[in-house]
Design a binder for these strands. Sequence first.
DNA 1: CAATATTTGTACCGATCAGTAAACTGATAA
DNA 2: TTATCAGTTTACTGATCGGTACAAATATTG
Lengths: 186, 186
Amino acid sequence: MKTVYERADIVPLLAEIFRELGYEGATLSRITERTGIGKGSLYHFFPGGKEEMAGAVLADIDAWFEEAVYRPLRHDDARQAIAAMWTNVNDYFRSGRRVCLVGAFALDDTRERFSAAIGDYFIRWIDALRSALMRAGCTEGEAQTLAEEGVCCIQGALVLSRALRDETVFSRSLETLAKRLGAATR
Amino acid sequence: MKTVYERADIVPLLAEIFRELGYEGATLSRITERTGIGKGSLYHFFPGGKEEMAGAVLADIDAWFEEAVYRPLRHDDARQAIAAMWTNVNDYFRSGRRVCLVGAFALDDTRERFSAAIGDYFIRWIDALRSALMRAGCTEGEAQTLAEEGVCCIQGALVLSRALRDETVFSRSLETLAKRLGAATR
DNA sequence: CAATATTTGTACCGATCAGTAAACTGATAA
DNA sequence: TTATCAGTTTACTGATCGGTACAAATATTG
């Protein structure tokens, strides 16, 4: 019996492990242990080792957000895209049970390895949200402040709901946020 | 030449290392390398090893917040204590250049080791802030929401300002937050 | 001063780390 | 059938991991 993978199947598995254990905590042996994928296969797909694995995961996450969140915010109906963001984000982060890997990497030394990817992810999120807010009627300054605040609170809510082991904190924060941004665009 | 430490001198040094490298990233050899304190001394003061070191750091952090933030929020003049919180927190986190170790631990597997300490820290922060808000004139529900939101945004601002390498994000978030809580209490 | 207790430096332990090498498997296709 | 090739398994490397043992150095006390 021998299971055959391709790169695209492995990346989401790696993502979940990095999320749970962090970059330093995700050792090669724990990865093989949790996925059943041997070192040989891992190094076959990611010759650059752990760093390339994490890089691929970050790129995958970025691509998902680009398509599901940023692009709609930039190009679709503004109010609709913002509303979709709340539900997409709540689903994606599993009501706070799942962590934002980009945010987690930003907090420790791992930031130095992936500085560009981490900065980009948040810059583009804030920019996209600001764009939607302006199209929905905010001034540029107001939109910038609210966009920053929105992304900021999402990250904080992930920390807080995990710390308190209370997923209602996350969903509740999103609702409060949705109301505030909604009030500013009508 | 031989330097002699006591436990109380070592804990803040450890704190800075755990902050920068995270729990898994803070290896014994990196600790001795950055502090100049040998393994012999470390295990003399912390027989429980790395886990006891991190525990001592968390207790130290908790004690600082209890005295500088929570107690004033619970017992001193409410408006004054809240105002002091913003400046204390901004200084403590060095305008976002320094990370909240408790929040960082909450994001990965390290949470399992220090679950109680992590939960307590945030519970008590939120409770203390809610107490002050109520004494300043908020209803209980309003105070609870605002307190949660305050702590939540501080954590998010730390993530965001580190990710963007922009400390103005942190200070700006605190100002926005201060205004919102100020408006709710007059 | 001498005796005792505390603190530190060094050498070491087995386990695990990231990474390498190469034999092996199974499918595709000439 | 045979050659090729992507992918897997296994065994291995040297380095580093957290932790221990203990003697040397220093403080403290008598």
